[in-house]
């Protein structure tokens, strides 16, 4: 499994301001949430796929096909089975299937939108956008630091696992509880190593004035330009159309 979905190549979506991308992501999530009819949801998904293709990010969706295809099948089946019954009579299975299909398309839209965002936005840009949207600097710092540490811990865990295997630890036999318990000799050394690293990192941050209590300075970044505002406008317009459809009673199958 790749440790980042970011695609390092230029595209119109890569160049957009991080705040514009986060807000557009939010608009699309809201639009998909307000619909449950397969037809408008399918149209929305096609729009997201078109944006993905234009940003040359379809490879991410291909990479995540192991997730996207089972999600579609599973969600359609489960919501067809769990379609909410009414007091009026037995459940119409055709309506239930259309509802299940709508839910599957909604979930695929959420996933595809999230993947194209991750394919075109670095974690630093995401943290920057969050800070511009009011999330405290330290929370963004933790997000980026934790993201950077994941491969370090993963690498350490794999090394320790191999070392324990060499000593005869078998992860493949026994019942579920036994197998889970065998992860303790892997987790403990990685955890202790992580603690040592955390202690050193805290010292390093302190000597660089992390908690100096003075106003923080940062490199200036360009603000949003016309293209960013256009992206926001398109996202907002899609949501406005969806709200209008909803008010008109189109795009809904059942009362929630």
């Amino acid at each position: 499994m790749a440790l980042s979905l970011y695609l390092d190549h230029p595209s119109w979506l890569h160049r957009r301001h991080p705040v514009a991308k986060v807000l557009a992501l939010g608009w699309l999530f809201v639009a998909a949430f307000l619909l449950d009819h397969p037809a408008p949801l399918g149209l929305l998904l096609v729009l997201v796929l078109a944006a993905t293709a234009s940003a040359r990010a379809l490879s991410v969706l291909h990479q995540m096909r192991w997730l996207l295809l089972p999600v579609f099948v599973f969600t359609t089946i489960i919501w067809t089975v769990f379609y909410p019954a009414t007091a009026d009579g037995p459940v119409d299975r055709w309506v239930a299937f259309r509802y299940g299909l709508g839910m599957a398309l909604r979930l695929e839209t959420f996933l595809a939108t999230g993947f194209v965002f991750l394919a075109t936005t670095t974690i630093e840009e995401f943290a920057f956008a969050l800070s511009r949207l009011g999330v405290p600097y330290r929370a963004g710092f933790v997000l980026t630091l934790a993201f950077r540490l994941v491969p370090v811990f993963l690498d350490a865990a794999l090394t320790v696992r191999d070392a324990q295997r060499c000593r005869g630890l078998d992860f493949t036999t026994g019942n579920v509880a036994t197998r889970i318990a065998r992860y303790a000799p892997v987790i403990v050394p990685v955890f202790i190593g992580g603690l040592r690293r955390a202690d050193q990192m805290a010292f390093a941050l302190e000597v660089r004035g992390f908690s100096a209590g003075r106003p923080r300075t940062s490199l200036p970044r360009p603000g949003m330009d016309g293209s960013d505002l256009l992206l926001l406008g398109v996202g907002g317009a899609i949501t406005a159309v969806v709200v209008a459809l909803r008010v008109a009673g189109i795009g809904r199958l059942v009362a929630q």
Binding site: V142, L145, A146, S211
Partner: peptide, 18 residues
């Protein structure tokens, strides 16, 4: 507290890594 901030990042990354 800088140490708690770093421990937060460590807990987060350790959780995600597993």
């Amino acid at each position: 507290n800088t140490r708690m901030v770093v421990l937060t990042a460590m807990c987060a990354s350790f959780y995600a890594a597993v």
